[in-house]
């Protein structure tokens, strides 16, 4: 992969004020009691929907109110496995004037406490969603009266996908133990890194400093995003610290799916290690999910794994992963309380 440090992107066309508003909107003022989880980062078929559906079911069964949002607009399939009839309402109705309340778009599922906003057969094109509409959608999602909102982002690294990913409290990447899948994930993290950097440049008024550093990247020996973070820190440890903090707010998690050997499962640690060094950000390895024919059996029966095979070991593994995310959330809540 090229070592190409470039914070200038085609999205330059968006005015700085709108980005500024957006980062304010995406970032602060939301209590940790409510969490948005985004699942993305891979091509199709890596297991994003498997993770999304079963994480959601775990949380709903523990008594949380959960809303799933199927943003995989090309390959939306959550409604099928959750027993939701094709509803007359879709995601794009968020923008129509007769929808007052986003709750009206939620359809109940076969799992108590779990509701779905489906993007299936939607005329909405997520990849080309105008900026203002995306903002509105994110805002509406944050208003949902749920304990957890879980976004199945689908494939790709379009700006819109990235913006949903960045807006979330937890960003979960699902990969397969295969070269192309890992490469895809790195490409996704890289895009998210620069997208996020762009947001905080405006927020922290750091643009001039970052531009100055990027101009001198050869001279400073900056080859990787991690080098860039260190260079910002060298210029101003205050600003650098804030940038690093904001980067880690993406709260990246990794799941390696369809593992068949111990070596496959180990790949997660390698990716974590390399990400720390190359991107300078923490990636938390949630663990691996073994290849198990029960998964496609449940897909064929159009039921989520946790419903069709509740005692399958993969279900227990995913419950532990959710447990880890919730423990971290509880810690955050405790800290927020102690700052009050």
């Amino acid at each position: 992969m090229d070592h190409n440090i470039n914070t200038k992107t085609e999205e330059e066309t968006i005015t700085s004020t709108s980005i500024h508003q957006e980062s304010k909107l995406l970032g602060s003022n939301k209590s940790s009691y409510k969490q948005i989880l985004a699942i993305g980062g891979g091509k199709g078929g890596v297991g994003k929907t498997l993770v999304t559906a079963n994480f959601a079911i775990t949380l709903a069964r523990a008594g949380a109110k959960v809303t799933l949002v199927d943003l995989d607009l090309g390959g939306a399939n959550l409604h099928t496995c959750l027993g939701v009839e094709m509803s007359s309402r879709t995601l794009s109705d968020v923008f129509s004037s007769d929808i007052e309340n986003i709750e009206d778009l939620c359809a109940p599922t076969i799992v108590p406490n779990l509701q779905l906003i489906s993007g299936a057969h939607d005329s909405l094109n997520a990849a080309n969603l105008p900026h203002a509409q995306k903002q509105k959608l994110i805002q509406r999602l944050q208003q949902l009266k749920s304990d957890y909102v879980i976004l199945d982002l689908g494939a790709g690294t379009s700006f819109n996908t990235l913006d949903f990913f960045i807006a979330a409290d937890v960003g979960i990447l699902v990969v397969l133990p295969e070269p192309t899948s890992i490469e895809n994930a790195y490409r996704f993290i890289k895009s998210a890194f620069y997208r996020k950097l762009k947001n905080i440049e405006h927020q922290l008024d750091a643009r001039e400093l970052v531009d100055k550093i990027v101009e001198k990247k050869e001279e400073l020996g900056i080859k990787t995003p991690a080098d860039l973070l260190s260079a910002i820190e060298n210029e101003s440890s205050d600003l650098g610290g804030k940038v690093r903090l904001a980067m880690n707010e993406m709260n990246l998690k990794l799941v390696v799916n369809q593992t068949r050997t111990g070596t496959d499962a180990e790949i997660g640690f390698g990716v974590k290690n390399v990400c720390k060094k190359y991107f300078g950000i923490n990636v938390d390895y949630l663990g691996n999910l073994e290849y198990d024919s029960a998964v496609w059996q449940s897909v064929r029966r159009r039921k989520p794994l946790a419903v069709e095979f509740p005692t399958n070991p993969l279900v227990a593994t995913m419950q532990k992963m959710v447990g880890h995310i919730v423990a971290e959330q509880a810690e955050k809540i405790k800290n927020e309380k102690s700052y009050e």
Binding site: G63, P112, N113, Q329
Partner: peptide, 12 residues
């Protein structure tokens, strides 16, 4: 399964 209301922390 328990019925949830948003803001109820029991699930945590």
């Amino acid at each position: 399964a328990p019925t949830a209301t948003a803001g109820n922390m029991s699930h945590i």
